[in-house]
Simulated scan of single mutants.
Amino acid sequence: MRKFLILLSLLVPFGALATIQIPDKFIADGTTHDIESTPLEDLFSHDQILLMLQRDGWCSANWRGYKAVWELSDGTLYLNSLVKNACDENPESVDPVHFFGESEFPIKATWVNSAIEVKTSEIRSVIRVLPNGDKEYVGYDYDAVVFEFSAGKLVQKLEKTIENRRY
Rank of each mutant, 00 (worst) to 15 (best):
I162V: 15
G30A: 03
S114Y: 04
G30C: 00
K135R: 14
R64D: 01
D74I: 01
V126N: 03
F44R: 08
Y142W: 13
P106M: 05
S81Q: 11
K153Y: 11
V138K: 08
P96M: 01
V145C: 04
R124E: 15
G75K: 06
F26D: 01
S81D: 14
S81M: 08
M52N: 07
F100R: 04
T161Q: 14
W70A: 05
D56K: 11
I27F: 06
N90S: 13
F44C: 10
Y66Q: 04
Q54P: 05
S60M: 09
S45R: 13
S150M: 09
F149V: 11
I35G: 03
G75E: 08
L50G: 03
V129G: 04
I22N: 00
F147I: 05
F105Y: 15
E71W: 13
I22D: 02
G152C: 09
A115S: 15
E36Y: 02
G101L: 13
G101Y: 14
R124F: 06
D34A: 14
F26Q: 02
L79C: 02
E122M: 10
F105S: 05
P96E: 04
D95S: 11
F147R: 07
A28Q: 06
F99C: 02
W58L: 13
Q54E: 15
I22E: 00
W58G: 15
D47E: 15
P91D: 11
L51I: 07
M52P: 08
N132H: 07
E102Q: 14
P23Q: 05
M52W: 03
